[in-house]
Computed example of a mutant assay.
Amino acid sequence: MQAVLMRTFGEADVLRAESVADPEARAGWATVRLKAAALNWHDVLVRQGRYGSPLPHVIGADGAGVRVDTGEEVVVLPSLWWGDDESAPGPDFEILGDHRWGTYAELVRVPVDCLAPRPAGLSWDEAAALPLVGVTTYRGLFSRGRLRRGESLLVLGAGGGVATMAVSLASGVGARVVVTSSSPEKIAQAKGLGAAGGVLYTEDDWPDQARALSPGGAGFDLVLDSVGTWRDSLRCLRHGGRLVVLGASRSDSVVLEPRPFYFGQYELIGTTMGSPRDFAGLLALMDGNDIVPPPISATYPLDAAADAHRFLEAGAGFGKVVLTQP
């Protein structure tokens, strides 16, 4: 099979298409002939060596294709061996593409319980773009964040995969959604997914501007923070609100004042990825509501994975970047 093989860690040019052996059959596992594989920022971190992946290595967590043994059209859940405790992943948990070869290939082998039918109405590109950001966002908003119809939500960073998914899911179930972005164009695109409005986080007073867009200016019920700006996020919450944290793309450390935090009765909730049960909840939610499919920012052929990574890292796109198969 053809695969994008990484023989060393580094910049995007370490990703090169090569011919490698097909995955071998294994009890309890299935091989999927991929139609598309979506990129995630997590892939960039794996490429940089942040997760100590074995070399040579094929990265990639997201994919959709045809199950070789049955002919079923499936999507791949990249959350492996979550465990029996829904509150947090168990000690054997890993993400597909971290230590086992992932989806930047014509074929991928995964545990059978990590496959689900391709959702009706989604193209191959949209289906491939769904699993990681979908299950991560569903868990953050609903399993952990307890978002309900009629509540208000602030989503930080309008253009990324999690952010665009959050706008689609939350607005689809009847929440009022506001976004932040560095670009008026991305705010306009977020409105196309169901957001009520947005503010530019490049302006110093953006938390005040965002709060002014919350119901009655009292603050949001929930803030979804994938960037790590907790202090500013807390300023956007109503008293008793919930801050859900699932990333740290702009900050590796945070200093919080304890008294305003506990007097505000805030909740700080950490989350990442999601379980098979979360994924089933996501698919059921999409089936029962008018949810906008994941927006696709750009597509590249498999052998142009390095170019796809450069596009992703430039941050100019809105939505997901996808590798397609002929």
Rank of each mutant, 00 (worst) to 15 (best):
A127I: 12
G315C: 11
G121H: 04
R16Q: 14
A248M: 15
P91V: 01
A3L: 15
L222C: 08
S297E: 13
A305F: 02
T272W: 07
V254H: 00
P184G: 07
F142G: 04
A36H: 08
W29K: 15
A21P: 10
S19T: 15
M6F: 06
R109I: 01
L302P: 01
P89Y: 07
T70D: 07
V162P: 03
L234A: 03
G270C: 01
G134E: 12
A175Q: 14
S233A: 15
F220A: 11
L323K: 07
V162I: 12
P260M: 00
F142L: 12
V321S: 10
L246H: 00
A128L: 11
S214D: 13
L224A: 09
H239W: 05
H99R: 05
A36T: 07
A306C: 04
F279P: 02
L15N: 03
E18C: 00
T271E: 09
L282Q: 02
R144T: 13
L243R: 00
L224W: 14
R50D: 07
A17Y: 00
L115N: 03
G52M: 03
L224D: 05
R67W: 10
L132E: 09
E72R: 12
E11A: 15
P258M: 03
S233I: 15
D290K: 11
G319Q: 11
R144V: 13
A25D: 15
G198L: 14
G198S: 08
R146V: 07
A195F: 05
L122P: 05
P326N: 04
Y138G: 06
L132C: 08
E72T: 01
V110N: 05
R146Y: 09
F311K: 00
V58G: 04
S123R: 08
L132R: 06
P119A: 14
G197R: 03
G247S: 08
L34S: 11
A25Y: 00
A158I: 10
R146F: 10
D69P: 04
L213D: 09
L237V: 09
P207Y: 06
F263P: 00
T229S: 10
S183I: 13
V14H: 01
G160T: 13
V58L: 01
V178Y: 09
C114D: 06
P293H: 00
W82T: 09
G28R: 09
R242S: 11
G150M: 09
F9V: 14
S275N: 00
Q189T: 12
S297T: 08
A105K: 06
G315Y: 14
V162H: 03
L302D: 03
P207N: 13
E24T: 12
D290Y: 03
K320L: 15
V44Q: 02
S297W: 11
L15S: 04
I269V: 14
A284G: 08
M1T: 15
M1D: 14
S168H: 03
E203Y: 08
G247Q: 10
A248C: 14
G319R: 05
D225I: 03
V227H: 03
R235F: 04
H309Y: 05
Q325A: 09
G140W: 05
G216E: 05
I187E: 03
G71D: 14
L15K: 04
V58C: 06
G140V: 02
A36F: 12
F93D: 00
G281V: 02
L246M: 10
F261C: 09
I187W: 02
T8C: 01
L5Q: 13
